[in-house]
Design a protein around this nucleic acid. Structure first.
Lengths: 145, 145
DNA sequence: ACTTGCCTTAGAGTGCACTTTAAGGTGTTT
DNA sequence: AAACACCTTAAAGTGCACTCTAAGGCAAGT
């Protein structure tokens, strides 16, 4: 009834190489089904599971943590809180990363503006980027990161 | 007059190991000054330069691109536009990364909410995360990412 | 018959950015 | 005199997540 995919087709579907799918299986992240000839096949549910793995990886979760998450999942509902907390930490970390990234981007943006000023002469030839930056730095800035 | 720092002190100041500072110098990213005994020293201006390098690295710029940037910088004002364009690309890429990250984070957030619902019983024991997710997916969603 | 797609294990290779070691040295401080 | 901070070059090691090769073998399609 529900569609089945062998590793080649599944690979294209989820955007991971067949190598990587076997590697993830080795690592215990995925369990493939097998046909009568021991050939792997995957179903719609596996698409969703790999999709979720990719969301987790996409937020910066490491394979080791992913493995722990999968082990907890296998232990059933008793581990729901622990899994929730894992995800919360991943989320908090990712949000901190974004905040830091945006801080760096702000400086980058100023530098680009400064270059634009140099090119169209609205910034004096003699003004250094450091001096130019001061105006965005007037008060309330921390010294580092 | 202006303060000088040897590699150990400078290392603590900028948060890079002495190894890394020498490595960056090898790679042409930094030029250290030398005293009469060939011992490296750094000044306030070097703090600012390393700071800027860290902003660039912080937005995901690779060492190879950083090297190219530094080479262009050494060639003077004629390369300003090229440098501007490099930074713009780094910025655009980083912003795309953030957008993707936030997309992943949204799913993560939903999963956390779903766990919370399981824990306090506001979500039926039988409801799958996939079904739960559908409500945020009503229309206008692309299939992937 | 041959090609294609899949299977196995074990191990090597890749890319990036460091990080450390080895094995010698100089100069300053305690 | 010993400890400490620094210097050199060249090379090896680390961590992560793949990525690929080797060398064998099955099963289905053309």
């Amino acid at each position: 009834m529900t569609k089945q995919y062998r590793i080649g087709a599944f690979s294209k579907l989820v955007g991971l190489s067949a190598y990587t799918l076997r590697y993830y299986e080795d690592q215990g992240l995925i369990v493939a089904h097998r046909d009568a000839n021991d050939v792997r096949f995957y179903t719609e549910a596996d698409i969703r599971w790999v999709g979720f793995i990719l969301h987790l990886k996409g937020t910066g979760m490491r394979l080791n943590d992913l493995k722990r998450y999968v082990r907890l999942r296998a232990q059933g509902d008793a581990t729901i809180e622990e899994r929730r907390d894992m995800l919360q930490k991943v989320k908090d970390d990712a949000e901190a990363d974004i905040a830091e990234l945006q801080m760096h981007l702000q400086v980058l943006g100023h530098k680009i503006d400064w270059y634009d000023g140099k090119v169209d002469q609205t910034i004096a030839d003699t003004e250094s980027f450091h001096d130019y930056l001061q105006q965005f730095n007037e008060q309330g800035a921390d010294k580092d990161g």
